[in-house]
Design a protein around this nucleic acid. Structure first.
Lengths: 126, 126
DNA sequence: GCTTATCGATTACAGATGTAATAGTTTGTG
DNA sequence: CACAAACTATTACATCTGTAATCGATAAGC
């Protein structure tokens, strides 16, 4: 699968939230957040189809688009490549950077603690 | 500062590890990891200079290159934009994804626990 | 049935990027 | 001093990306 560009990602996000969707529904969903012309959004949809990240089925004259690439798969793959590229594969330094610059909220800490606890339960083979 | 491309980043990494460095030193440092032609590396160095991410001073006929953009600054900025783009700004889901796919090592957990502890010390105003 | 509005498909075009090759300049060497 | 070697600067070029406009088909209304 070819890389998804940043503009394409915004379109994909819409489909992840609600699919299948017509091109116009996607255009409308993006109307608030972006200033994209309808033609632009349709080009992006097309490129996503070409890249295999989105599929469609005909519904009369219009198409109904659905994501093929799932959000969780995208997130995992992008996370891994990002962490590899920028932090040589180590995840803690990323979180540490956030902590140092006050980008961590109470909620983040709580969630991190919880998932650490879960991890330790499942890996109690110390 | 214009965006640093992925190829440019590899060059920057060399300078973060050792600077100042001549173009040839950078070329050699990249010789193992990549198949880049010498000319390619020099083009990338040039683009980094144009983008303001790298500076140089003349040393005879050759230049000595140094990073202007610091690694920690780059990491923080990229992390924030990545987390925003891919995880709507929440960092815990990223770590959770790693945990679910067994991408977390003992050491990662240890580091995370430690930084959480530090965070809680500094934010004991609950 | 014909025309028009509406879809998707195709084409456009400038800037970024990957990956070099060539041109121009300086310097060490004979 | 002249020439060659070694640097950097400039140029090249295909592909990807952002951002649309135009073309061609088709469905809906009159």
């Amino acid at each position: 699968m070819k890389d998804i560009s940043q503009a394409e990602l915004e379109v994909l996000k819409v489909l992840w939230q609600h699919s299948p969707a017509t091109a116009n529904q996607v255009v409308e969903a993006l109307a608030d957040a972006s200033q994209w012309h309808e033609k632009t959004v349709k080009t992006l949809l097309n490129r996503l189809v070409t890249k295999g990240a989105v599929s469609f089925e005909k519904d009369g004259r219009a198409y109904l688009y659905s994501p093929v690439l799932q959000q969780s798969d995208y997130q995992l793959k992008e996370s891994q490549s990002f962490i590899q590229r920028v932090f040589s594969g180590r995840i803690a330094p990323l979180v540490a950077g956030f902590a140092q610059h006050d980008k961590l909220a109470e909620q983040d800490i709580a969630e991190l603690k919880q998932l650490i606890a879960r991890w330790e339960l499942e890996n109690k083979n110390d």
